[in-house]
Design a protein around this nucleic acid. Structure first.
Lengths: 269, 269
DNA sequence: ACGAATGTATCGTACAGCGATACATTGTCT
DNA sequence: AGACAATGTATCGCTGTACGATACATTCGT
């Protein structure tokens, strides 16, 4: 039995909480902290690992895990060797997806788009310095792990991220670049601030953003932004293909108009 | 802006918790209770609604919501009119999906299956009296809301459920039937215990289960069970099509072998 | 067979979270 | 417009919950 794929190029969400907030319930923070331990895990976890990772005592971890287990948010591994996330999580996934108006509005358009495009089509939503994939329509050849709902990627070095940044002020863009932990995820990841700004500018002019192998070797992706009525960028639509089948120019010529149309259909108020 | 689709035919999970458990952390239960309020909601919720639904005081709801908001598990609605589930939920979705060995093992097989089948293909996992959809490869014509990850259906009246029950003892089957709140979701939903037992027996003999419009009008579905090495049923693979294109017999003849093969490929330890 | 690491149980004390209440702000009805 | 109802926000003293240390049980690894 194998357990694979931890965070990898995923981005941890911002969990910098304000200490000494009179309304803040610490027990809840502990619970979520425990659940979040799995973000970095590649295998079922033991109580001690959870306690250590959460910076809490063994007793605290024990009680939290016990409680979450009763409620179904944590399970025992199939072989009873450790703890894994529980199925009740999916109930909340459903709630999130169906109550997010952007997802609801975008989905039919995405499926229509997928009909005209034999490549992977994704919807991502902005959360701080990252984009979180909310809906993914995989192409024929994709592997499962590359296309998980909830997967997240940095804004600074992705097509979707740059499409989003294209709808921000220069100051905001700079702040994102500044605060991001930039590293070369692949050899072709663009990490230089000036170069990123240039790509954002390019996206502004083209109306779409392009990224070549910045996250995954051999992957080409273009994206267009989804914006709220007041112009705030909320997320992006991605079309991703393989460089073994496409060169950048023909990929853009073929898919940029489609991606633009799709975004347009969603963005109308 | 519209917010649609609440629980409907979804099944609420079993949250009957043991009172007076010395290790039970009530604050966590409260937090999850609050998040679970959205299961039944068709629109953004107010503080008072959350408090009332959770059977707690306004202050308690206030603190819980405040905390979950800080952590990103609850957001304000786009128009600042109410509370909605937050995007951090998706991080845990990803954890669940990738750390569940059955999902991991089944996914490539599912995609291969989808390649040979132009209909919807689903993977569901058992949780008590219900099946929870964990992976869904939609066909061309599906609407988004019909194919949400996290959607759940009762065991007693679905193809997947009967495929699962086929791998249980008669006593276990009876218990499921007994404990389920059986109602006619559609006019064709089978709710009579004896009739259900007969359908289970039929599934045992055929190696697959069939359901006709028991959940959704016009839908036909067949399913095969996924079992652990010791024979315990863990979930099912579904193939679902439309009665406007298929009659029961040809649907089975065409897809039963494929569903069986797929389940077989996954079940080999 | 042994030792190390796991999950489980117990218990008195401190402080976290409870509920009542009061305030602020928004939207709605006539 | 003006008043009202309903929303989210803040404050505070008391109670009871969750804390951590420790001891026990059980499984795993070698």
């Amino acid at each position: 039995m194998r357990y694979i794929q931890k965070a990898e190029y995923g981005v941890p969400p911002n969990t910098s909480i304000d200490e000494s907030d009179p309304l803040f319930v610490q027990a809840i923070a502990r619970a979520m902290q425990v659940l979040s331990t799995f973000h970095e895990a590649g295998k079922p976890l033991t109580l001690n690992e959870i306690a250590a990772a959460g910076g809490m005592g063994k007793s605290a971890a024990q009680r939290v895990v016990h409680t979450l287990r009763q409620l179904g948010y944590i399970d025992r591994d199939a072989d009873d060797r450790g703890y894994v996330p529980g199925i009740r999580i999916l109930d909340h996934t459903r709630d999130y997806l169906r109550m997010n108006p952007l997802v609801a509005r975008a989905s039919p358009v995405l499926m229509e788009l997928r009909r005209n495009v034999r490549e992977r089509v994704d919807l991502s939503l902005r959360d701080g310095l990252r984009l979180v994939y909310a809906a993914r329509l995989q192409s024929k050849r994709e592997t499962f792990f590359a296309t998980l709902v909830g997967q997240s990627v940095p804004i600074y070095c992705t097509s979707g991220g740059r499409a989003v940044m294209a709808h921000m002020s220069d100051a905001e863009v700079d702040e994102i670049i500044e605060r991001s932990v930039r590293r070369e995820i692949t050899p072709r990841t663009i990490t230089d601030p000036a170069a990123i700004r240039a790509k954002v500018q390019e996206a502004r002019e083209n109306g779409y953003a392009l990224a070549l192998e910045e996250i995954l070797q051999g992957e080409i992706a273009i994206a267009t932004a989804l914006v709220s009525p007041d112009g705030t960028p909320l997320g992006a639509i991605h079309i991703a293909g393989s460089l073994s089948e496409w060169d950048a120019e023909s990929f853009c010529r073929r898919f940029a108009p489609l991606a633009g149309e799709a975004a347009g259909a969603i963005n109308r108020f």
